[in-house]
Design a binder for these strands. Sequence first.
RNA 1: UGGGGCGUAGCCAAGCGGUAAGGCAUCGGGUUUUGAUCCCGUGUACCGCAGGUUCGAAUCCUGCCGCCCCAGCCA
Length: 569
Amino acid sequence: MTDDTPRDFIRQIIHDDLESGKHDQIVTRFPPEPNGYLHVGHVMSICLNFGVTEETGGQTYLRFDDTNPGKEDVEYVQAIEEDVRWLGFDWGQRLTHASDYFERIYAAAEQLVERGLAYVDSLSAEEIREYRGTLTEPGKNSPYRERSVEENLDLLRRMRAGEFADGEQVLRAKIDMASPNINLRDPALYRVRHVAHQATGDQWCIYPMYDFAHTMSDAFEGITHSLCTLEFEDHRPLYNWFLDQLQPQHRPRQIEFSRLNLAYTLTSKRKLNALVAENIVSGWNDPRMPTIAGMRRRGYPASALRDFVTRAGVTKKDKLIEMGMLENSVRESLGDTAMRRMAVLRPLKVILSNYPEGQVEMMTAMNHPNDPDMGTRDVPFTRELWIEQDDFMEEAPRKFFRLKPGGEVRLRSAYIIQCDEVIKDEQGNVVELHCSYDPDTRSGTGSSDRKVKGTIHWVSAAQAVDAEVRLYDRLFTAVNPNKADDFRTVLNPDSLVTANAKLEPALAELAPGTPVQFERLGYFCVDTQDDAASARVFNRIVTLRDSWAKLERQALESENQAGTSPSRK
RNA sequence: UGGGGCGUAGCCAAGCGGUAAGGCAUCGGGUUUUGAUCCCGUGUACCGCAGGUUCGAAUCCUGCCGCCCCAGCCA
């Protein structure tokens, strides 16, 4: 950073706490529950928690909030670790679990019981719900609320000892059943659950609830700032109640910020899960998924994700950010670093009638037009080439700068060609173009400084490498699929389109995951999962900005408007 | 209808009583063997609305409106 002006309200608070001497060092934590994969929303939290300590020389814990066995799995803890590491953050020795503190959390619970601040309730779950009241009506006390300390302690110990079945007893904090804040109406602290835990096995049959476990874990680790999302704002009074009553050595402060929502994407874990379970996508790392694993496989650089959330900012306002913002970050981080290559997605055969049969010229092409240091590679040029179907139009509009009958175009890094003849099949489809090349216009030779308006990409047919290229688009057609009654009704049927492409030979050696730009098309990478020597598979990371496509779209729109809306201006 | 939050341009977002930064998008233009990149330029923002305090308010006060969250023995 160029100056020490905090970028957002949380960094401002942290800055002030450091300045005032309240803290010498900042300690934060990223506390995912290992019950699913991390997504874009989490990137924000990860970058914030690790970011503030990176900036101030503090420490951040990666803590698994594993207090609900049965829903959690080690598969997820490994994936989460990998995702955080991939994003570029290091927790050092600070990898912990809420379950590491089960004994101490339990001791805190006994303490509350001993001080008459918690009791064992024998009401059923349904009864507790009834007693809780509603948003507008106060709740009423449980008949078990006034049990003696001795009885409560005995009951709690017997809960731990396994004398009760699931749901039979629950430990509750004794706060205020009439509180306007429902979280304070005697919240549950411990429930009985005879389920093996992924880390502690069958050592426990009672498990602490989130609010209690989280507050205590934060205190035990000496977290100075416990950063979480807005929906926990109502829990802060409870968080502070625990701290007030138990007076741990460290007193963390909870601060809430708004979630990051991306337009046209889903971030509900349950729904993401359904996409996978119902095979709507190929898995948690399907390149269309908003998961970190999905975006990584798609080819988004970690730096782009970090840049994106930094630009989005940390505030308390609900956000629904446009996709264009993320794509901009992706393009920006790829633009200067990705090598340029040529590939034809929808091939159209071109035959250069005046080019010697059997001749192969090696054309020198720059790996990056703006950076000579990135070097060059040789691209074979022959009589038979593939060009993009979209780059030819029989009846082209005025501003179409590509190939048309009788027209000229430059083949990138090669010659200028002219279209002499259009070959069609019985149905009238264009199947082949007969063109002639101008030997005087070979790229870089300077023998001719003739200019043509358009330049198109191409691949020599004989040396072309075949590949499956997967073209991805947004998974949903609704801006906020989270809000749809059924997300299945707003799925984008074209979120994945496959093309049988022709690649220049240099692409055969590309390592999986390495991003390259297919000139004029976008950024692509070899898929890390499905690619094989026998069947190359590429993913489209993101398209290039395309002002021609924009022009076309605008033309279409104005045409539609003129044709279909006679009344409304 | 109880409680907790939030409202600055299409989307983000600075601003912290002295007269509305920036990014993305948009729209123009220039360079270009990627219609890319790059470079210039482009916004009458009634600062949710209405009052009030003040020489002066996006910033302070009051009232209203809109949106989000909360009634798991989930996190």
